[in-house]
């Protein structure tokens, strides 16, 4: 019963959080600059947490995440602008299309480990970008104009659903199978874990949410171009996950929020931003490889604090 009450309280808090922001938005208390910032944070959280499932939980070093983002962005944009479909089915289609790509990448790259997998996923991301560049239907290098359809409600629901799905998946027998693969693939297989199935599952679910993030992204920033989905985008997402702490979901959320804010203030200085990013990455790896949170969660820390007080 404790669990049900906890879930109820959490649900209530989430609803209040949503309502407060929505109210402020409709009353015009949040100006467009901050609204944009909010959307940015939400999209980055989606990208980071979906990559967290692949890298942090399953231990598959994928650095082509922008490829999934691109698939989602383009599929949804084509559906809404070219085929005049409503936004909701376009969002779902973006997720499904990206998930299919996730399976497509997952299956051939399963046998690869560590750095080989990294290069192959990077290659996948580049192939997606180059392909989009060459398709005139979606505007080639110039990209596509997209209507502004993303709003707080869609994004909020998407983020919350994603966090619940990934958290629930992680805290279950299936999530433990993913963790086992991260820890030791040979041993996991020896314990009866079908590593092929689980790796594809991780890629599919991760890509699904990256695709949804793509739909949100496309319909937030008016225009999408292949150049926005290159290696640098994948790298940005990777930095968030590494900074948050590989294996920590709340770390990914925290780092996504933090870096989105930093980003906005550094937007005017793109070079400085990248130098800073790379320095942060190197320094974190050298001096705090576990990132902000290690593989712990915020809830673990709260529990410990409460335990001490009691």
């Amino acid at each position: 019963m404790v669990n049900r009450r906890k879930a109820l309280i959490t649900g209530l808090l989430l609803l209040i959080g949503y309502a407060v922001v929505q109210l402020m938005l409709s009353m015009g208390l949040i100006d467009p600059f901050y609204e944009n910032m909010l959307m940015n944070i939400g999209i980055n959280i989606m990208l980071a947490v979906s990559l967290h499932l692949i890298i942090g939980v399953t231990g598959q070093f994928s650095i082509g995440h922008a490829g999934f983002l691109a698939v989602g962005a383009y599929v949804s944009a084509v559906l809404t602008t070219k085929l005049d479909q409503p936004f909701l089915p376009a969002i779902l289609a973006a997720g499904v299309a990206a998930a299919l790509f996730g399976i497509l990448v997952g299956v051939p790259t399963l046998r690869l480990r560590g750095d080989y997998l990294a290069i192959a996923t990077l290659g996948f991301g580049e192939i997606v970008r180059i392909t989009l560049y060459n398709i005139d239907y979606v505007g080639g290098a110039a990209g596509m104009q997209v209507r502004h359809l993303t709003n707080w409600t869609y994004l909020y629901i998407a983020v919350i659903v994603m966090i619940i799905v990934i958290a629930n998946l992680t805290n279950s027998a299936h999530g433990r199978a993913l963790l086992a693969i991260r820890e030791d693939e040979v041993a996991a297989e020896a314990m009866g874990v079908n590593t092929t199935y689980y790796k594809v599952l991780a890629f599919a679910v991760g890509a699904f949410f990256a695709g949804i993030a793509g739909a949100m992204y496309a319909h937030q920033f008016y225009v999408i171009q292949p150049v926005a989905f290159g290696f640098l985008k994948s790298f940005e997402i990777l930095v968030i996950v590494v900074l948050g702490g590989i294996g920590s979901l709340s770390g990914a959320i925290l780092a996504a929020t933090l870096l989105s804010l930093v980003n906005i203030y550094l937007q005017a200085f793109p070079e400085t931003r990248m130098i800073l990013y790379s320095l942060v990455l190197i320094l974190v790896m050298l001096y705090r490889p576990q990132g902000l949170m290690g593989n712990r969660e915020i809830t673990d820390l709260l529990k410990r604090r409460l335990g001490k007080e009691a």
Partner: peptide
């Protein structure tokens, strides 16, 4: 002697650092 992921991530960091320092 760290995990390969850490080394590879660092290498990516070094790469970007060189590129953007050159641009800077």
């Amino acid at each position: 002697n760290s995990p390969r992921i850490a080394a590879l991530t660092t290498a990516i960091g070094v790469s970007l650092f060189i590129e953007y320092t050159t641009i800077y």
